[in-house]
Amino acid sequence: MRLNRIVALFFRHVYLYRRSIPRIMEVLYWPVLDLVVWGFITVYLAQFRQNLPKFIPFFLGALILWDILFRAQQGISVSFLEDVWSRNFLNLFASPLGPAEYIFSLMLVGFTKLIVTASIMAALAWFLYSFNIFLVGISLIPFVLNLIVMGWSIGIITTALILRFGQEAEVLAWALGFLFMPVSAVFYPVAVLPPFLQAIAQYIPASYVFEGMRSVISKGGFPLDELLWSLGLNIIYIVLSFLFFYWNFRVVKKKGLLVRIGE
């Protein structure tokens, strides 16, 4: 494992953003729109005060948080596809670059993008609505980090599947994340799920995050139990997803598919 090689690939993506307006837009566009809409709705709802339907702030918060997970996952799988599409993949793996270094570089790119986005959103929230995220949102940060890690696990698994099954599996880069949405309790508590889905939700880190978020909004305080559950599960899943990727990488080399990726 060499930092140098991770940094090399990090720059490969930074160069892109330095030049491409659509790519910079991608970092800013959705978050800014999210913020504007969310902000105006909040302003509008403030008029009702007493009889404010509680589900609305839940709903909006959940939407933004789910977006973070989705983006973390895409950060991995779509960046990987870019290497495949530009037929650069073999050049990378004909170098001393190892699979773990490759994945770490994608995580680093995604994380940096997220930090930039989050800072801009925080600044905008301050300017537009005098809303200081650091007063309300600080306790959300560990939860957000958990969502990112879960997104990464899904991204790594997606990438491994695309390696293995080729072009037909590329659609997974966009789709696989949503498979976890129903059991992540994004918009509703786990309790509304039928028993067998509840059983599954138990093993989904994001379900604890969203339950935790709801309890912060409705009761206040800090849901430490939920945090620890999602953290524990996430550690297991990220390790398993790395192992899955490694195993798959080996299978793909045996089947001669690594050199055919993108064909």
Partner: peptide, 15 residues
Amino acid sequence: VSMPNSLTVKECLKV
């Protein structure tokens, strides 16, 4: 096998 097609010649070599 190609180089990343959205990079410049020099950037590719740097990477």
